[in-house]
């Protein structure tokens, strides 16, 4: 696989953070292997024919809808995505919409789709979809947010005066990297909901489940250094005594 292909077809970190799914699962759920060498010493490993280019949309890469959009023999036009040096929009950020019918309104970032430089802003830039209408029934309208480009269609809001601002990443005196408003010089703090996943709001407020090992038990150090090998330790524990000395052996 070409390095560029690998780099550009990857799912962005911030678009999968909220799901709290392991990378191995996302890889498995996404991959479409058409042919793979069987296992065995006579076959070259890693010889695999699989889909390399994926079309990323609002559907999450591990979902069935994504699989349907990227089903075999279904190809999409190449989409050019402006490379961003560092992702700076997080879940819970207050942003102002710069385009569309909600132009000038402020809202909270609800979802990040990093592969397309998109964010979904809660309740803004929505579309209405009519579902389930037929001859007798008028159907229901479902409202859903349309994605907005972070490069040109939304702008971060300075928390001190609630007005749009440019920003840059700077270091604080304690060495922490923060976003700073270029207009007022105020820090734009990363919202706590950036840490939020489907399993917990923040790590510190996570409610431990019966099968979770608690922190004290995980961090407890039970190892006592002794002048003995692992096997000697075991023999001590199980009360096995051995007086015979094995004969010397030599390697030539």
């Amino acid at each position: 696989m070409r390095l560029t292909n690998l780099l550009f077809s990857r799912v962005g970190k911030y678009s999968k953070d909220y799901s709290n799914l392991p990378d191995s699962y996302i890889k498995r759920a996404m991959e479409q292997v058409y042919w793979k060498n069987p296992k065995g010493p006579q076959y070259r490993p890693n010889a695999v024919v699989q889909r390399k280019k994926f079309h990323f949309d609002t559907e999450r890469p591990w979902s069935a809808q994504f699989r349907q959009e990227n089903s075999p023999n279904r190809h999409h036009k190449k989409i050019f995505v402006e490379p961003i040096k560092e992702w700076s929009f997080f879940r819970g950020d207050r942003v102002e919409v710069l385009v569309g019918k909600d132009k000038g309104k402020q809202g909270i970032v609800k979802q990040i789709i990093q592969e397309r430089n998109w964010v979904l802003v809660e309740g803004l830039n929505c579309e209405l979809k009519k579902l389930g209408d037929d001859k007798e029934f008028a159907g229901v309208y479902v409202q859903s947010e349309k994605p907005l480009l972070v490069t040109s269609e939304v702008s971060l809001v300075d928390p001190s005066d609630f007005a749009t601002t440019g920003f840059e990443w700077r270091f604080t005196e304690s060495g922490e990297r923060v976003r700073v408003s270029t207009r007022t010089g105020r820090i734009i703090p990363t919202p706590p909901s950036a840490e939020e996943t489907i399993d917990y709001k923040t790590k510190s407020t996570y409610k431990e489940q019966p099968k979770d090992t608690v922190a004290d038990d995980v961090t407890e150090v039970t190892f006592e250094p002794r002048l003995a090998t692992f096997e000697m330790d075991l023999m001590d524990k199980m009360g096995i005594k051995e007086d015979r000395v094995p004969p010397k052996s030599f390697w030539y």
Partner: peptide, 26 residues
């Protein structure tokens, strides 16, 4: 006390390698 999973509350544990020097010191 150990169970199948580790709680998300657990802070990251950073440990240096236990070397022969550490054993000598003990």
């Amino acid at each position: 006390k150990l169970k199948p999973y580790v709680s998300y509350k657990t802070p990251d544990v950073v440990q240096s390698e236990f070397t022969a020097e550490d054993l000598f010191n003990v």
